[in-house]
Each structure stands twice: as structure tokens, then as C-alpha cells.
Design a protein around this nucleic acid. Structure first.
Lengths: 256, 256
DNA sequence: CCTTCTTTTCCGCAGAGCGAAACCACTTTC
DNA sequence: GAAAGTGGTTTCGCTCTGCGGAAAAGAAGG
């Protein structure tokens, strides 16, 4: 695109990129860190963090000598949670399922090339990673990602797959395994991913369509404790049952 | 302040004010609505909403012909939820309590003159309002607000009370009832508010201090179903028990 | 079709926001 | 103690970004 988008407000985008950087960091970040991550000048970062601090979105964590996000950021997600009918209907089922299996259950939606956890019901069985509402994963490393791709109508699915492949290629990754997972999900109705994101972590996921919106029911597991067999049978069946209560069977039946 | 804050980035603040307006609206908002609410020119709003749309924070809801927040906003709250030790420890207790009482339980923190719900565990008993993580209430109408004020050390409490009173006075409200609630909380260890925010809605709340951070355990109730007596005895005692597990007894004992 | 309302784009302009450099504050090293 | 290192803030000259009024375009309703 030769011409700059005249309607795009760069300063706003820069401020939000700081919030995003903080949202992906495990610890508070100093202005120098943020300058490195965003490529912006230190004085620009200083002004932006100052503004975000005055507005209440970040605060300085003195112990770590860096900025962290404040609870005020939760308010930006409130209507998403409060107005999501699917979440309302799915939550009791996810809670029952978590209780019955001992596993963590979650609902995820797609955001471009990532999935975002909308709700996470923690189970007794520990997964060696901190999961919470708002957490996100790249589509190719997550069962929910594969399920969400598999559920799409043909045109959309092809386009999204092309973008995912391009992204993976750009990062020097082989897309074959992911494509196989998507194909398997289309055949079996559930996606299984093991040790893709991290060793020891996997997931089983089933897509659901509700009011024209796609989402994925998913169970992240510790692969050291839960066998692939269990994922493909017990857990998959349980998820499919819930999905069937919430919406039409996905992916739509199709010749192999 | 005579001199403008040279380090404050107005464009960023304007964009965020749009996200905030949407976070407080029950339905999608058009650019005209947003222009009225923020006082900015329509063309400015159009550019800002365009930018937020490109970045993925809002989308146009065609059915309602207005913008709404996307799940991407949840990611900004993720580290708050993932890193909050108090939430981690409180959640199982809140869940047990919700199950035992049938009521909704929640954890709230303060954000200037508001409280923000960090976690909401829905119970069987319905409260005629949609509660969710990220929801917020003004301090004077919420039990959690009174509890959070009551728990503060003297200096901080006086300063915050002065600000709350000034705000209430500016809005033509009488602060006496709120001050009484705070005083009662300091005496009893729990704050009870009924029908202040809305008729039919009330709350019982107990403050907790954890790692130098104040929070409030709270149970919102339907005042038509739950008596003040039950709130002050059964529910208050249950909350105090949980608070005692999580941190020191609050408010600190003090001569009346 | 016309009218009305809403939104987007255009465009002149000034000041907002930029980044390099200077300055500041604190810590570490010698 | 002085000097160097580290991280952050403020200044300041400058330009181009973002502004808002006006015009154009789009959408909805009759």
C-alpha cells in the first residue's frame, strides 16, 4: 500500500502496543524494555507510559522497577463476558465437565491468527501453565485453533489456512502437522494437539457454532498424565456432547 | 494546573476513552453516540474507531449498527488475572461458598472512585443484573466499596473519603449513609449495602489484605429474597471466615 | 424517487507528538 | 570518594500528525 492510511491514528496504536507488550510479558517491563520491544524512542515510550499511568491502565511496580497492567484493564473485557450468550450457556456445562473429569475446561474464540480463552474453569489436575481468561495462543499450536479452523466454511477455511501457513513459513515452521490436525478434526469432530506449544502440554478441542459465532470448547491437559487415547475417546466424547447441546454438529458432514 | 502536561499524549487518551465508553454501554454504539458521549468531533471519532477496528479492539455490529468491544480486549486483563496470587487463593473458597450458600460470590479491588470485580462466581440464586469479571461500580453504592474504604489506614482512608464525598456532593448526593456504612464496617468487620445502586440489589462485603494489596470479598444479593439479618449474620460470618484464611483481620482493631 | 440522518473523507493548518540530545537519579565499580 | 554505567525523564527544534469544519458519500425510511 503506497499511500499511508490517512485515517489511522498512529499515537493511539503506539499506546495500545505498549499495553499489548505488557499483556504478553510474565513480569513488569521498564521503559527500556518497552522501547526495545516496540522499536520506539525512549522519550516516546516515557510519554506513552506516563499517559497510561495517569489514565490508570498501568502502574509502576517498584519492587520490579517496571510497569504492569492494572485491574482497570479488566473493564475493557467486561461487555464481552457479560454479553456473550454462548458463554452463559456453556459455563455450567464446562463446570460440570471439569468437575467430572478433574481437568481444566475452557472456551476459546479466534482473534486473527490467535485463539483467546474467554473462560477457563480450573480442574483439580494441574496443567503446568497459568491459564486464565484473556490468555492467548497461536492457532497452529493449539487444539482450539485447529478446531476453529476446521469448523469454518470452505472459503473462509482456505483463506485462513493460507494465512496461517504463510505465517508459519515466515517463522521457519512446517505446516504439515497442523494441516493434518485440522483434517483429522474435520473427520473426527475433535482436534488433538500434544506437545506443540510446550513439552508436557496438550489439548483436545471441539468447535461449536452459536448465533453465527464460532468458538471452541477445549480441555488443556498435562500430556505426561493424560494419554492420547483418553483424549481421543473419553474427553472428546464429553466435549462433543456439550457442543451438541450448544449448537449444530461441527464440522458439517462432508465427503472425505 | 496552569501548564498543560507536556508529556500527556491526548490522542491515546481519546482512543482509550472510546473503549471505556463502549465498556460501559449495554449495547453497541455508533460514531454519533460516541461523539456525544466524549464531546469529540465526528470526524475525530471516525478516525479513532477506524484505528481501533484495524487493531482489532472493536468491531462493527451490523445488526445494531454500532461498535462493540471484541474478545481481544480480554488479553489486556490476562496478566492481572494470571498473576494475582490473592485471586488464586481466594477462588476455591469463593467457589465453595457460592456452592454452600447458593449465592454469587466475588472478589473486588479498588480503582480510584470505583470498585472492579476481578472474579465473579455465579450461584444458583439469581441477582437481577449481569455480573462478570471487569464489571465496576462506584464506591458509595457498593458494599465492596465501603469495605475497601474501611480497611485503609487512617490517612489514606480520610483522603479517599474526602474525594468520595466531594464526588457525591458534586452529583447532589448525600454522603451520610455511605459514611455510616463505612463506620459500621469498621465496627463490625463487614459492610452491608441494600438498594443503593438499584432497587432490589444489595451486597455484603469483607475486606482482605494480601501482600500489601487490599481487596474485598463480596456477595451481591437480591434484596427481595435475602434479608438484612441473613446478610449480617450467615453471609457475613462466612465471608469473614474466608477473609481470615487469606490475610489479617480487617479493619484493624481500633478504639470506637 | 426524495429526504433525513449518519458516517466518512477531504483539506488547510497549527500545534501535537516526535526523536536526538541534554539532563537527572541511582547504582556499581575501582 | 570519583567515575562509569544504567535507566529514565525532560527539553526543544521541527515536521508532519491529528485536528475539526465542511463537503461528499452512504444508509435508512417513507
Amino acid at each position: 500500500m503506497a499511500d499511508r492510511d490517512r485515517q489511522y491514528v498512529e499515537s493511539l496504536a503506539r499506546g495500545l502496543s505498549i499495553l499489548e507488550s505488557l499483556s504478553r510479558s510474565q513480569k513488569p517491563l521498564g521503559n527500556g524494555d518497552l522501547a526495545k520491544m516496540t522499536g520506539l524512542a525512549a522519550s516516546t515510550i516515557s510519554r506513552l507510559t506516563h499517559t497510561l499511568t495517569v489514565l490508570g491502565y498501568i502502574r509502576l511496580n517498584r519492587a520490579y522497577r517496571g510497569y504492569e497492567l492494572t485491574p482497570k484493564n479488566l473493564t475493557l473485557g467486561y461487555p464481552v463476558l457479560a454479553e456473550m450468550r454462548l458463554l452463559e450457556q456453556a459455563r455450567p456445562h464446562l463446570e460440570r465437565l471439569s468437575h467430572a473429569t478433574g481437568e481444566t475446561t475452557a472456551l476459546a474464540v479466534r482473534d486473527k491468527l490467535h485463539i483467546i480463552f474467554v473462560a477457563v474453569i480450573e480442574g483439580e489436575n494441574l496443567v503446568a501453565v497459568r491459564l486464565a481468561t484473556g490468555g492467548r495462543l497461536r492457532i497452529p499450536v493449539s487444539a482450539a485453533g485447529a478446531a476453529l479452523v476446521a469448523a469454518l466454511p470452505e472459503d473462509e477455511r482456505r483463506m485462513l489456512l493460507a494465512r496461517v501457513r504463510a505465517d508459519m513459513t515466515r517463522n521457519g515452521q512446517d505446516a504439515k502437522s497442523f494441516l493434518d490436525t485440522v483434517a483429522a478434526c474435520r473427520r473426527d469432530g475433535a482436534a488433538v494437539v500434544r506437545n506443540k506449544w510446550r513439552t508436557g502440554i496438550g489439548g483436545i478441542s471441539v468447535p461449536v457454532l452459536h448465533n453465527g459465532e464460532y468458538a471452541a470448547l477445549t480441555i488443556p491437559v498435562a500430556t505426561g498424565s493424560v494419554s492420547e487415547e483418553t483424549m481421543r475417546t473419553t474427553l472428546a466424547d464429553a466435549l462433543k456432547e456439550v457442543a451438541g447441546i450448544l449448537g449444530p454438529v461441527l464440522p458439517p458432514p462432508e465427503a472425505p
